[in-house]
Write a protein that binds this DNA or RNA. Structure first.
Lengths: 196, 196
DNA sequence: CCTACCGATCGGTAGG
DNA sequence: CCTACCGATCGGTAGG
């Protein structure tokens, strides 16, 4: 249940990620969390400042994973269609490798306050822009259809890769690469049968 | 704020839908809800049995809207590609017309218990099947590429139409029909530029 | 629909 | 990391 080889603080964050993702932030009490770690409620405060700190760290962890996976692609040399396939792969990989924190990130960020809340809304703009720029790049390269609306195209791509947190099950028969390739094939080539 | 022409019980459900969607189910207290309606906390219980009843009704309302919009299409005569476009339109229309209850439906259903919880998981299977059957129908008709995986294709379509609850803003420049047509054009025809 | 109240539980702290 | 505790708030009820 709890990986006792990790520092206690990381164990707490792991447990919090799991419980927050399963039950939600507000429906998880500090005593639920302590019980999951085999300690008393008050003992948690020897390691952390408060409940919201846990949410902040989980959300920051998730957004950092996305950033580190995607942003190096901005200056990558491949054509935009290959880059899009790779971005989708990396994006889904982050979701798959961080199911708990990704779920908390998508579901519970609205419960943040102040600067942490603002950071998430700004992060979303950054990711939107990343995908829109990638689409515009592909249109400029003549690789994507010229009539694409970068905003709607980015929305579609983001829908696909983000929604994976709802249905993807790590350890199942599909790897993140499988999912990304399926999606990229369908998106790039279209669902319609080629004219006969 | 509150539409005073409606029966009180509907006003309560409307307020609950809005507050639950903005703050989450557990972060909304019955006193928050009562204050939004200009009454005292205890007075709510003259109209409802308990807090979970509100969540159940909101979630049931949302799933019913989806059912009523989509299921008549099962026996519709159009080719599957046209049917898919129409299904996406209706699906997004339901989201757009019910932003609050759709948001609560997607975010808070895990807080249901017993039969209400089970009903939601079964509903998801039903919708999955609806889209998979639609894809398989299109493949059988020769309208969709023969190598499509109905499961992954349904996942992609569902990602697109469901994720709209995150970013769509009713009253903006895009109607649900606009969004559906953009998405259907991209999905059916693909993002790649046609060979020159 | 209000007042007044119930037991339970919440996040967090003091002192060891 | 535990024991014992704090004030605040929770969903819900009784009686009017």
């Amino acid at each position: 249940m709890t990986d006792t080889s990790k520092p206690r603080r990381e164990q707490i964050l792991d447990s919090a990620g799991r419980l927050f993702s399963e039950r939600g932030y507000h429906a998880t009490s500090m005593r639920d969390l302590a019980a999951d770690l085999g300690m008393q409620g008050g003992s948690l405060y020897a390691h952390i400042q408060g409940k919201e700190e846990l949410l902040i760290e989980i959300v920051n962890h998730a957004s950092r994973q996305f950033d580190e996976a995607l942003f190096p692609l901005r200056s990558a040399p491949q054509p935009a269609d290959e880059k899009l396939r790779e971005a989708m792969h990396r994006h889904i990989q982050v979701v798959a490798d961080n199911m708990d924190s990704a779920t908390v990130f998508f579901h519970e960020w609205k419960h943040l306050s102040g600067a942490a809340y603002t950071r998430v809304t700004e992060w979303r703009d950054t990711i939107d822009t990343f995908y829109r720029d990638l689409i515009a790049e592909g249109v400029a390269q003549g690789r994507f259809r010229a009539d694409l609306d970068p905003r709607m195209t980015a929305n579609l791509v983001l829908s696909a890769v983000n929604w994976a947190y709802i249905w993807y099950r790590p350890g199942g028969s599909l790897t993140p690469r499988d999912v990304a390739n399926h999606y990229a094939d369908m998106l790039l080539g279209g669902l319609s049968a080629p004219p006969a």
